[in-house]
Design a protein around this nucleic acid. Structure first.
Lengths: 367, 367
DNA sequence: GTGAGGGGTGGGAGCGCTCCCAAGGATGCG
DNA sequence: CGCATCCTTGGGAGCGCTCCCACCCCTCAC
């Protein structure tokens, strides 16, 4: 039985076909109008037409109008490749995500950062180009693409510590601003970067718990090869060293930012038998796992044990009890990322080359 | 108190700064090596160097090696703008998402489609460029970007019916393949397209319910200006017309694909007082809402009322009872999208210009 | 030995654009 | 009226690359 809403034209189930990349060279007939043709139609020279179409300095009113009319009539579209060739820049920048697409689309972090980048770029005339770089092959191709003058600069979202991409791009002459902190010997120190104050945020969270009378504050730390994981643990350590004198190593459990690892981390901490009256989880997802474990052990939050998270994920205000957590101004970070790259492209010498954005936190029910 | 993990160099909280777009023209000192320089270093001519670097036909072994060595030593990166200018193509294609970034990152559909596109393109040497086109200003800029020879073709993800983008791109000479169905008078019929067999999938779902002895099969339909919403309702109508003779209009409620609208749709259907023994929801999200409503009314699924969804969202197998639902081969659609665009770029006359991909379904507990 | 054939090479032409400079035309002031 | 000044214009140069064609030289057949 044929479906009536199947359309009438040449439609069928697709069959695989030879996929060789042999596109036509010099696409034959579709010669699009060039600036030369516009100029001819308007009765002026190339130079005048170019000036008329780019701001119109030193162009008479009459010439201006003639060129604009001719361009509209011919449906003229400037060849940006030619423009790039002579200008030496393409007026587009890349937003490169050096992560698996799995995380890309599931982690709201990317959505919010992209939104910030996007909003800062709106109306600037600069084209934003999103690109994934998930493996070495793709990274090489990206470097070729960017170095080939397709991108004037790159915003790189990269949170895993040893990422060869910033260095490779800088070596190819592409200015990079990284979201995250590309420190360490194996990474480029030339790249500029923006990061949330993960350390300070974590410290403030612990200090808040202390101010509420908590003393035995454990932590479920995140992945240590990510700056977010490392720095948040640093923040906890700093606050605890001050509060407890020495560092209570037995109050640390390690997770990987996932909910399951939060569950396991809490179980591990409780199993050690040491008194605990608060748990700081290095991500909200892990905090969800911690809450789950505490509930199942019959412990009350926050009466028996206070819980804090980090991120303010969607959903954090709806869990039981609503999660007190550290918030990063992700949109703002995206905007700063763009501003820094534009400064770098303009060659502003006095600009800040790295920015740490302060975090805040929302107090809800869990602490 | 200063955070010890704050780095040592020039770091501070960012302050807004003038954002005018006045990048440096003709970036001064950083003259990168050109093909001419590579040729000179290798002791051959431009032409020979070019041939050596592009497949090496009619190049002696000696010249080949000399050029490769020179290129490596100088760190030569071909200027892709110059290449694009002479070839008339850029060897990159766009994946344009004509949706809000809200949905972009929350709807797993995009992640899976992107994965399919990505995997099909791997190793082809073609650069994939993701772009958002959320408003008219961005759409115009995208057309300029693509028509300016930055993109050889565009894969457009667009499910809202009157989308001016495919037509605008085709008018500018850019081949487009749409994910979705750009039918209707206001839309381009020139664009090629790929769509899931929404109509057939819905019909099969209803036929399955009929085969299980259900007779009064209601539906909560989706947004009607999206082909997915329209076609899925068509499929339900076709099956019901055959089964019931006439079309039971009072078994239709309308939603917008969201969970809340599924809840309201189910309530509306039940409130009409007509006997119902199954509900086909046009999305899993709406099916979740339907299940919720039925539970609250104390109705048993599937004993009292069977429920089917459409999409196979992550989470559909974990709801109560696990959802029986129609699945679209989204990855495969992404792959087909790429293959079709490459065919179109190659100018293959005999290629299919539209493809409807058959759906399947998974039987779980709800029907 | 001579001519045909083919692999290998060099360099001119040209892609479409922007920049620059010389030259023309209009205008103003002494 | 003459000359300096400014606005406007045209067209050459050149961005870095690929294509094309003429040319060279080596090989092989007759």
């Amino acid at each position: 039985m044929l479906c009536s809403c199947t359309n009438r034209d040449n439609t069928s189930v697709f069959e695989g076909r030879d996929n060789a990349v042999t596109m036509q060279r010099r696409t034959g007939g579709d010669h699009r109008p060039t600036l030369e043709m516009v100029a001819a139609a308007a009765g002026v020279s190339r130079g005048t037409a170019s000036r008329a179409l780019n701001g119109g300095v030193n162009v008479s009113r009459k010439a201006m109008e003639a060129v604009e009319r001719a361009a509209a009539e011919l449906g003229y579209r400037p060849n940006l490749a030619a423009r790039t060739l002579v200008l030496g820049r393409s007026e587009s920048i890349g937003l490169v995500i050096s992560e698996t697409d799995e995380r890309l689309f599931s982690d709201p972090y990317f959505a919010r950062l992209t939104r910030g980048v996007h909003s800062e770029l709106a109306g600037s005339g600069i084209q934003l180009v999103l690109t994934l770089a998930q493996n070495d092959q793709e990274r090489r191709q990206l470097v070729r693409f960017a170095a080939g003058r397709h991108l004037d600069g790159v915003l790189l979202i990269s949170h895993h510590r040893p990422d060869p991409l910033p260095l490779a791009l800088e070596d190819a002459g592409i200015p990079v601003v990284v979201a995250g902190r590309p420190n360490g010997p194996e990474c480029s120190t030339r790249s500029w970067w923006v990061d949330a104050d993960n350390c300070g945020g974590a410290r403030q969270a612990v200090e808040y718990l202390i101010s509420k009378g908590r003393r035995n504050i454990a932590t479920v730390a995140g992945t240590q090869d990510m700056s977010a994981g490392f720095d948040r643990l640093q923040g906890w350590k700093e606050a605890m060293r001050v509060a407890a004198g020495a560092l209570p190593e037995d109050l640390i459990a390690f997770g990987d930012f996932s909910e399951g690892s939060g569950r396991r981390g809490a179980e591990e901490l409780l199993a050690r038998g040491r008194p605990i009256d608060a748990i700081f989880a290095a991500s909200d997802l892990m905090a969800f796992g911690v809450l789950d474990t505490l509930h199942r052990r019959g412990l009350k939050v926050p009466e028996d044990i206070a819980v804090m998270g980090f991120d303010d994920m969607p959903g954090s205000e709806r869990c039981d009890p609503p999660l007190t957590t550290v918030v990063q101004p992700i949109d703002e970070m995206g905007r700063i990322l763009v501003r820094m790259l534009l400064q770098r492209l303009r060659g502003e010498e006095d600009a800040e080359t790295s920015v740490i954005v302060p975090t805040g936190f929302v107090v809800r029910g869990s602490a």
